[in-house]
């Protein structure tokens, strides 16, 4: 396995072969992420299932670095109208009614294996990629909002007004529904989602990787320490797991 420094992502694709392997070395000897960059012309496959692990014990109280990074990366500028502005990721504060224990954690699209949004979408605009990432094909979204009714995680936003100056890697437009894409444009490029990268600068509470690869950091951690699903009772097998809740 070859380990490449973070800053070198652009070169990675020239390393050749079907799957150039890259990782991010945070400190000497500590490998936090192992991410496969596929060639541009290769379709994603279900051999991979992208997932995230969030360690709520490490998540900073009052820290919103992941939210800021998401907004910057995807150009979610908003109109100062919190009820209608899009939020792809948000920080939740939980307080146990019985014990008073308080904790915070980020919640975004949980990229379910059997996603209710995908089931209910009349046109198939809500869909799950082979590698487990749940997306909205805004080209065929009619803006009926049934997916927003069906999502158990309140993960989706409806674009309520005209947008200007969208990012070229994150097209978004009025009248369609959107949600966390797991930064699919970065993932396809062998990079981590923006929230994970931002979190790794200080708190290191978020891990991204391939749940199907037993040797990935995320799989090893999940195997060793376990990981909970939000609303596990619904049996949706989400790709985002939590520790410490």
């Amino acid at each position: 396995m070859k380990t490449v420094n973070t800053t070198d992502t652009s070169k990675r694709k020239f390393l050749g072969g079907a799957a150039a392997v890259a990782g991010i070395a945070i400190a000497p000897g500590v490998l936090l992420q192992t991410v496969n960059a596929k060639p541009d012309n290769e379709a994603v496959s279900n051999k991979v299932r992208w997932g995230m692990l969030i360690d709520t014990n490490k998540c900073g109280d009052g820290c919103t670095d992941c939210v800021t990074a998401c907004n910057t990366e995807n150009g979610l500028t908003g109109f100062e109208r919190p009820e209608t502005d899009s939020q792809w990721i948000r920080k939740l504060t939980l307080k146990d009614k019985q014990t008073g224990h308080v904790q915070t954690l980020p919640v975004m699209c949980q990229h379910c294996e059997t996603a209710p949004c995908v089931d209910v979408c009349p046109t198939g605009a809500s869909f799950k990629r082979e590698d487990g990432i749940v997306l909205v094909d805004k080209h065929i979204c009619i803006g009926c909002r049934y997916c927003m009714m069906a999502c158990p995680y309140k993960a989706r936003s409806f674009v309520h007004e005209d947008l200007q100056d969208q990012k070229d890697h994150a097209p978004r437009g009025k009248g369609t529904v959107e949600s966390c894409t797991m930064c699919v444009h970065k993932v396809d490029n062998g990079e981590n989602p923006a929230c994970v990268t931002a979190c790794n600068k200080e708190h290191k509470a978020m891990y991204f990787g391939d749940l199907n690869d037993a040797n990935s950091e995320i799989s090893k951690r999940l195997k060793q320490y376990g990981g909970k699903q939000i609303r596990a009772d619904l049996g949706l097998n989400p790709g985002v797991r939590y520790q410490g809740v």
């Binding site: 939210v67 919190p82 009820e83 939020q87 948000r90 920080k91 939740l92 504060t93 939980l94 307080k95 146990d96 009614k97 019985q98 919640v107 158990p152 995680y153 309140k154 939000i230 609303r231 809740v245």
Partner: peptide
């Protein structure tokens, strides 16, 4: 409100 964490008091910037 949707019950993401039954039994917990939940708050957020997104009206949870």
């Amino acid at each position: 409100p949707l019950q993401l964490f039954p039994g917990m008091e939940v708050s957020s910037s997104f009206f949870d």
